[in-house]
Design a protein around this nucleic acid. Structure first.
Length: 354
RNA sequence: GGCGGCGUACCCAAGUGGUUAAGGGAGAGGUCUGCAAAACCUCCAUUCACCGGUUCGAAUCCGGUCGCCGCCUCCA
């Protein structure tokens, strides 16, 4: 870049000369002249142009350093991305992603230095995601309003978290909230309860595999899923397709249409594998959820089972008052009973989370 | 001030020129059930922040207004 006149060294620093790169600003739709007005004070006087950025910085005492033709120093802050991407992906490569807050200056500068150095495009497509916000404010380290994935997984399942993130188009801001987490968990529960029903009706469900989509003729769900994803990764729309599939599945289960069940299951399994949801064995997912929920009921499985047995005896004796009292007693602890043809099962009330 | 974007039902959220404005949550009614739960069915925006314009036709395009967010300094 120095040889091309795109960069210059000053006192062991090396700067990129933005005014020597005509398309500077093309990604962020900014023009150098317009940005001058907003340029703040303490511009480094050694720069030729205020927007020039460091490709290499001389080390100050106590800082880490590497040897270089310009003396001891370290790479400028955009260099690592250009260096790594060209080494591992080549140039140009297909898709460069990142948060919308990085468009300027970070990605703009990456383009300038990479394209300036190599004379060809850096990336074919740029994919910028909207910010995750908390109470409408950008979630960021400096504001301290952040939640790590590890934190989030203390109170919700990994697939539930994915569902939250998938429920909004990636370019839109996503306001992270307790309510969204709960709604995602509810949605996931609905899906797995349906799949568990399915498993009971049509055993030996294959677990979701990370395999390419195979769109068979007549597989409407897959076709619509693919259309949604082909539309700039419209995962919110794709989730709508998933929920419609779940509804179709429940309808077929109610109607006992076995052939339909197998087809929809195959489709949902493939869709789930792409989205990273519905990859668990339904009965295990529900059992695990039950186990976690048990903690905040203040009851043990034995106590619950004992009350259920007592209720069953009351029902046999047609003492429905006693039976309903037991139901109410358990409900107070968040335990919901479900009478089925094969006996009574229980689950933890959705929305109550430990 | 400049650049980019957002404002769709009670809440979340798709839809960017043309059949009835996806889907989820909440809510209401119904089927099923001894009672429930789950599931299913029905209902829930003549209307898309507001005003004006273009068009046979606009949530979607254009102009303006209001509100909100991100970036415009170093660092990553």
């Amino acid at each position: 870049m120095e040889a091309k006149g795109l960069a210059y060294a000053v006192d062991g620093d090396v700067y990129f000369a933005v005014d020597r790169f005509p398309s500077y600003g093309k990604l962020s739709h900014r023009r150098l002249e317009e940005m001058l007005a907003g340029a703040r004070v303490d511009v480094d006087e050694r720069k030729r142009h205020p927007m020039d950025f460091a490709l290499w910085k001389a080390s100050k005492p106590g800082e880490p350093w590497w040897d270089s033709p310009w003396g001891r120093g370290r790479p400028g802050w955009h260099i690592e991305c250009s260096a790594m991407s060209s080494k591992y992906l080549g140039q140009p490569f297909d898709i460069h992603g990142g948060g919308a807050d990085l468009i300027f200056p970070h990605h703009e500068n990456e383009i300038a230095q990479s394209e300036g150095a190599r004379g060809c495009a850096l990336a074919r497509y740029w994919v910028h995601n909207g910010m995750v916000t908390v109470a409408q404010e950008k979630m960021s380290k400096s504001l301290g309003n952040f939640l790590t994935i590890h934190d989030a997984l203390q109170t919700m399942s990994a697939e539930g978290l994915r569902l939250v993130l998938l429920s909004t188009h990636y370019r839109m801001p996503l306001d992270f909230s307790q309510q969204k987490m709960e709604e995602a968990e509810k949605g996931l529960l609905r899906m797995y309860e349906t799949l568990a029903r399915l498993e009971a009706a049509l055993p030996s469900s294959p677990p979701a595999q990370d395999s390419p989509l195979t769109t068979q003729a007549g597989s409407e769900l897959l076709t619509r899923f693919r259309e949604a994803m082909d539309d700039d990764f419209n995962t919110a729309r794709a989730l709508g397709v998933v929920f419609e599939g779940i509804r179709d599945l429940n309808r077929a289960l109610d109607a006992g249409q076995t052939a339909t069940l197998a087809r929809i299951r195959a489709e949902l399994v493939q869709i789930g594998a792409v989205l990273g949801i519905l990859t668990e064995i339904p009965t295990q997912f529900l059992a695990e959820r039950k186990q976690r929920g048990l903690l905040q009921t203040g009851l043990t499985t034995d106590e619950i089972e004992r009350l259920i047995a007592e209720r069953a005896a009351a029902r046999r004796a047609r003492d429905f008052q006693r039976a309903d009292a037991i139901r109410a007693q358990l409900a107070e602890h968040g335990v919901v009973l479900q009478d089925t043809p094969t006996g009574t099962t229980w689950k933890i009330e959705p929305g109550r989370r430990g």
